[in-house]
């Protein structure tokens, strides 16, 4: 049996009991919240899954998501559960790198904060965002993009019929409306202001590159990483540096990433974060594998319970 650890981006919907699940195994989650609050000088200690302030703040949501990922990784590591491969979905890359011991906990916080600031700086005068379309093919959406506008692109393929768009908000709204008319089962504007994974962030990526060179000492990863951008497998610090930079302004393809890992004989994935977004996306990916979410932690740590 081969195991992959996969790391979700920031969460919009919690299962509800994540802090309790983690607290049953260690104090890491609380300690990380405290440590991050002190280090960043912002209040993360008062986090609860029902507090919308932590979902609606893009930056806080990223910090919290990262803390969930790191806490779960520590529990798995203490339980001697090791991955054969690791991969981060979008901004889940930071917790993925913590898992591989490439960055420390606080370096991850630094990277998240810096990327956020640079993205904000790079898009100050733009009305940007992201959207989701479920139920159309890539070809259908590409046709809609031709007819509708510049300034919006497909930036992630979650499945054959599930895509994320990024770009200028008015253009995204037009495409979402056209998609609904074309027969999409669902369209929605995501609760983010930043246009992740798009060329608008070329300037931010360049500055992020400089920042990492100057400030972040990256180590080789203890585990092989599968890139969500181009599905290559790597673990060197040089490649990790490049992945961090490109992750801001390059498209990701989660479907191909999962297919790559399944092709590497991974038959068990652990979603290392809150919520169950990767579990749900995984249901539409073909292959003989299982994805376990945090609420199956007891079974992961003690397979006899399955």
């Amino acid at each position: 049996m081969s195991t992959g650890f996969i790391f979700p981006a920031f969460i919009s919907e919690y299962l509800g009991n994540e802090p309790e699940i983690l607290s049953a195994y260690s104090n890491d989650f609380k300690q990380f919240l405290n440590e991050a609050s002190i280090y960043l000088k912002i209040d993360l200690k008062s986090f609860t899954v029902n507090d919308h302030a932590f979902i609606n703040s893009e930056l806080k949501a990223q910090y919290i998501s990262y803390i969930f990922g790191c806490s779960l990784v520590d529990i798995l590591e203490n339980g001697k559960i090791q991955p054969d491969f690791i991969s981060g979905y979008s901004m889940g890359l930071y917790a993925c790198l913590y898992c591989g011991h490439s960055i420390t906990f606080t370096q991850g916080l630094d990277l998240i904060g810096k990327a956020y600031d640079l993205i904000k700086e790079n898009t100050t005068h733009l009305d940007t965002g992201m959207g989701s379309i479920v139920g159309l093919s890539k070809e259908d959406i590409s046709e809609l993009l031709k007819g509708n506008s510049n300034g919006v692109e497909i930036v992630n393929t979650n499945g054959e019929h599930s895509f994320l768009l990024s770009g200028l908000k008015p253009a995204i709204l037009k495409v979402l409306e056209a998609a609904k008319n074309e027969g999409a089962l669902n369209t929605s504007l995501l609760n983010v202001r930043s246009p992740y994974h798009i060329r608008f962030l070329d300037g931010a990526a360049q500055k992020f590159d400089d920042y990492i060179s100057d400030k972040i000492q990256i180590k080789d990863s203890s585990f092989k990483i599968v890139s969500a951008l181009d599905q290559r497998v790597f673990n060197s610090s040089t490649d990790i540096h490049a992945e961090l930079v490109n992750n801001l302004n390059s498209k990701i393809d989660w479907l191909k990433t999962m297919e790559k890992m399944i092709g590497l004989n991974i038959d068990q994935f652990i979603e290392c974060g809150a919520g169950n977004s990767l579990f749900r996306i995984g249901k539409f990916i073909k292959g003989d594998f299982k994805i376990y979410t945090m609420n199956k932690l007891d079974k992961i740590l003690d397979p006899a319970k399955s």
Binding site: L136, H161, K180, G183
Partner: peptide, 11 residues
């Protein structure tokens, strides 16, 4: 059946 046919019907 195409998904978008279902989508249009469900609207």
């Amino acid at each position: 059946i195409e998904l978008k046919t279902i989508g249009k019907y469900s609207v």
